[in-house]
Design a protein around this nucleic acid. Structure first.
Ligand SMILES: [Mn+2]
Ligand SMILES: [Mn+2]
Ligand SMILES: [Zn+2]
Ligand SMILES: [Zn+2]
Lengths: 138, 138
DNA sequence: TATAATATTGCAAATTTGTCGCAATAATTG
DNA sequence: CAATTATTGCGACAAATTTGCAATATTATA
């Protein structure tokens, strides 16, 4: 089942339909990198209204289609694990460069155990590193 | 050296003094749990102005006294590792309950290695789990 | 397919959140 | 204590996010 289908079925399953604006927002996020609200509104202002972007993101978030990641001061939106490969970020505090990495096997297990220990059913997690990239080290 | 002293010296070292409002904000964060901007302004509105809260948090953040963590939809402020034991959170998606945990030895090392692999000098990291607590499981 | 019912959107206005300039107050220096 | 510098409060402002409602699109039903 490809992404489109998965999107449609996730929406349908929750009583929503895939409309042109929702499609547009989803596409804008396909690029892979986390996008700020500002970037999204600029990209999509010809296609859909600002208010609709917020409403759509709220829905997508509720259905687990997108997540917010906090990077330093600002947050950004990106597709959730269900719609893009699970990964995390390391962000440069000076130049803002962002690298995505998938984590070494083992961490997932540790996190599951932690959740279990506190009697939580873990639904998701986020792991963000910050520091200085090779260009900005000194 | 206790927290108060460490706070004073961090401020002094950077040319700031410990004033009553700054003290108040710091105290409000001592409770331990991450606080939203809204909570902070409500708690402190009798003591200091909204603008001053923002200004103070900006300073504290710059000096590494506080950090912001993204929890689901909203970000929250809490004392940094320098002023409270290093820890992470697991948050219930339904009732909002937050549990802090310190991580099993081993993760820190893995994260350092990841940073190294991408030639980053790691300054800090955040790790947030989400799921359903024992009360909200079903 | 036509019609009715429901869901979604755009638009404008309202609210909330975050920033800024500046005069009043507090802290520090000498 | 007087002079200097830092900090704060108090608007006013600007940006971000939310909301009501009428117009439009989608879905359900006949
Ligand atoms: Mn992971
Ligand atoms: Mn850690
Ligand atoms: Zn950099
Ligand atoms: Zn719960």
């Amino acid at each position: 089942m490809n992404l489109q289908d998965r999107l449609v079925s996730t929406l349908k399953q929750n009583g929503y339909s895939l409309t042109k604006p929702r499609q547009a927002l989803f596409s804008a996020l396909q690029a892979g990198k986390p996008r700020s609200m500002r970037e999204l509104t600029l990209d999509l202002e010809s296609v859909m209204d600002r208010a609709s972007i917020y409403r759509t993101i709220a829905i997508f978030e509720r259905l687990g289609i997108v997540v917010r990641v906090q990077q330093g001061w600002k947050y950004k939106i990106e597709l959730s694990d269900k719609f893009s490969p699970h990964h995390h970020h390391i962000t440069c505090l000076r130049c803002g460069k962002i690298i995505s990495f998938d984590e070494p096997a083992g961490i997932e297990k540790i996190l599951d155990d932690i959740a279990l220990q506190y009697e939580f059913v873990q639904k998701n997690h986020s792991l963000e590193l910050e520091g200085y990239c090779s260009n900005c080290k000194n």
